[in-house]
Every structure is written in structure tokens, then in C-alpha cells.
Nucleic acid binder design. Sequence first.
DNA 1: CGGCTGATCGTG
DNA 2: ACGATCAGCCGA
Length: 195
Amino acid sequence: MKQALFALCRQPTELAACSLLGARLVSDTPEGRVAGRIVEVEAYGGAADRGSHISRAVTERTKIMAARPGLAYVYLIYGMYHCLNVVAHADGEAGAVLVRAVEPLEGLDLMKARRGTERVRNLCNGPGKLCQAFGITKRHNGHCLTEAPLYIVPGEKPAEAEVAAAPRINIDYAGEAKDWLWRFYLKGNQYVSKK
DNA sequence: CGGCTGATCGTG
DNA sequence: ACGATCAGCCGA
């Protein structure tokens, strides 16, 4: 079970990204448990991917992208939101998968309270939103995602026909890499962040 | 569309 | 030390 996530994350980042679709993300806190199904991800690679944090420089913050597959890379964006990534890459490479959207399954009331909305579709349909709903902060940076209190249970890899590939969002600075089809989501799923 | 917000990182 | 930048979200 734990080996399953490690094996999934130890392959080229874009393949790991696809394979994470359908997996279950669980967060336990003193306030309760929330859980959901991953429905949208983006792959961010190593030196060759100008959209990726680590391609600019290997720094204290970004070096985790080259660390052990299966760890969480959580960072603060725009001063107020967090983004959850899963370190994933082939041996000797670097990369991480951004979890962009989740379909809420468990702990809906807690999610609603944390998010300040009653609309289920607005709870987890964005990387900052799902971190808010799941209580994910920089404290989870470096945490191993096979372990409580924040963990991922891989599911069946979705059939290729159910997966859509698209350019990644908000990386205009990434040169030619901005056109790479490294965003993946489940076709027709209503909890995806954008159509 | 614009405002919010602060860690991060290159520059001096 | 300083300033530019930013893999978002919200409300109008």
C-alpha cells in the first residue's frame, strides 16, 4: 500500500501526474477528517521545464523537488494561499505534481466551515481552495504522503479515454514549456477548477 | 478587472 | 536591506 504510492511517484513526473488522478487524499486533524478524490493535477519537471520552480534555481525551498518521491512539497503563494505538490520523478531527476482539484468525499461540513462557503463545488476546485479545505499549510512541507495525518491512497489508474490533457495554468513566463500538455484532469468532472 | 498578502530570491 | 515576483481567490 505504501509501496504503491512510492512506485507511482518514482516515474517521469507527467506519468506520475496521470496516475494520481482518482487517488484518495486524506487529512486528519483534531477538528476531524476530510477526504477527497484527486480529479485534476499538473506536472512540474526539472531543469528543462521553465515553468517549474526548481528550473530557476535549486534553493532551500525548491530542493525538495529533487528529494524522495512521495514527499509533500507545500509552499505559500500570493502571500495567502498554499499549494500541495507530490514529489514525483524518475531516479536522478526532479519534479513534483501539483494537486489542483479534488472531489469532496468525506468531512464536507468541516470543509465548508474552513472555506466559508456552502457550495460544495467551490470547496476544493483549485489548489489554494483544497489546501484551505484540508487544513494543509507549510507545516506539511517535507511530510511523507504515505503517513498520517496527511496521506494519499492510490486508486486504479484511470483509462486514457477518461483523461484530458491541457496546458498548465498561469505560467506565461515558462517559454515554450507553457504549451506542454502537462495538466491532466478527469473529463467531464464537475470539480475540476476550469473547463 | 483589481486588490489582497508575505515568503522567496536576486541584487546591491 | 530592498524590490520584484508569484503554479490563487474573491467580489464587482
